[in-house]
Amino acid sequence: MKKIYIVAILMIVAAIALLTTAADDMSTYATFSQATRSGDRVKIAGQLSKDKEMYYNPAEDPNYFSFYIKDTEGEERKVVLLSEKPQDFELSEQIVLTGQMKDEAFVATDMLMKCPSKYKDEEVYIKNEGK
């Protein structure tokens, strides 16, 4: 089985080499201040500021949706998502954005929303006509 072992060892070497390059693809969740400093493309996790303006007017630009989130350090910034406003956006609790800082706003190309699960929903659904 010697040759097989050689191949296996080669693969392990390749795997280690790949993993070192893969480190470049990874990052920690950034904060707005880090994103501003580095200027890199990063992922930011934050809470939607529900009291701030959410702006989407497709008649003006169907690929421009802006809102505000608070990052993990509590810093609140404007976010521009270059896409339509997703459904149920107002309900989202946690938002993960991929993008970079551009002037004062964080320009995101990708967004993942975490919505409250209905399993956790404490509300009991009562028939409307029953009231």
């Binding site: 169907p62 270059l82 896409s83 339509e84």
Partner: peptide, 16 residues
């Protein structure tokens, strides 16, 4: 040129 690395085609997918 709004976003490095992403082409404009990828960025603006929707049309009115």
């Amino acid at each position: 040129g709004l976003i490095e690395g992403a082409t404009s085609e990828e960025l603006r997918r929707n049309i009115l």
